Simulated scan of single mutants.
Amino acid sequence: MTTVYLSTDPKADELLAHDRFALLVGMLLDQQVPMETAFAGPQKLVERLDEFSPGAVAAIDEDALLAAFKQTPAVHRFPGSMATRVQALARAIADDYDGDTAAIWQRDGKSGNAPSGAEILRRLKALPGFGEQKAKIFLALLGKQFGLEADGWREAAGDYGPAGAFRSIADVVDDESLQRVRETKKALKAAAKNGQS
């Protein structure tokens, strides 16, 4: 049984460990809020919506989804834009992967072989709200914590792939590693700022 420490909330983490759509939505929300706030978001949506699945979220009235995002405590500090992104993501999964989120990294390619790390990265980058960095971090998360064995996933994940990198949510397994990731991010941000001046 997979256990994770992504939101620091046991109930939210249990959802993330077993629901791949929730996990992907948590990654999508990981922007301009603390990591654990982003990954706690899917549990809030589960509690506020009648059904939380790609098909249901794709079909829900936009105002109803926005209301669920805005309810206190808010799912994200930018509820409007994030509700729109989550619905676009749900629609892409419903349309392109028959509502099966895990198919993004599990479904066979045209060759009949399991997708490579590079192919999974390409698929993730094609999703609404997923740029290069977010896609690489999610690929690393799948490899490090969810048993992904795709060929070349570490290489495709770039700087986020190596074991013990402590660069992203992919490396967070407890409070100590969460603090180490925060310190690394802070140092990288400071280095980038100093490099620009």
Score class of each variant (00 low, 15 high):
97 Y>C: 13
179 Q>R: 07
50 D>C: 00
147 G>P: 14
172 V>H: 01
112 G>F: 09
144 K>R: 14
74 A>E: 15
72 T>K: 15
105 W>D: 05
168 S>M: 04
22 A>K: 04
195 G>P: 02
110 K>T: 12
115 P>T: 11
43 Q>P: 02
120 I>F: 04
155 E>T: 10
173 V>G: 06
63 D>K: 13
10 P>K: 01
42 P>R: 09
78 F>Q: 06
76 H>Y: 10
24 L>G: 08
35 M>W: 07
179 Q>T: 00
19 D>L: 00
171 D>F: 01
51 E>P: 02
61 D>L: 01
64 A>M: 10
109 G>W: 01
98 D>A: 15
192 A>V: 03
161 G>W: 02
61 D>E: 11
181 V>G: 09
188 L>W: 02
119 E>F: 04
179 Q>N: 05
21 F>M: 07
126 A>T: 13
170 A>D: 00
24 L>F: 07
66 L>W: 01
169 I>G: 01
52 F>A: 10
1 M>G: 00
178 L>Q: 09
96 D>H: 13
20 R>Y: 00
145 Q>L: 13
71 Q>T: 15
114 A>G: 11
102 A>E: 12
142 L>S: 14
118 A>S: 15
23 L>P: 07
59 A>C: 05
70 K>F: 11
86 V>L: 05
179 Q>M: 06
133 Q>R: 15
63 D>I: 04
77 R>L: 09
114 A>D: 08
118 A>Q: 14
70 K>D: 15
147 G>L: 13
180 R>V: 00
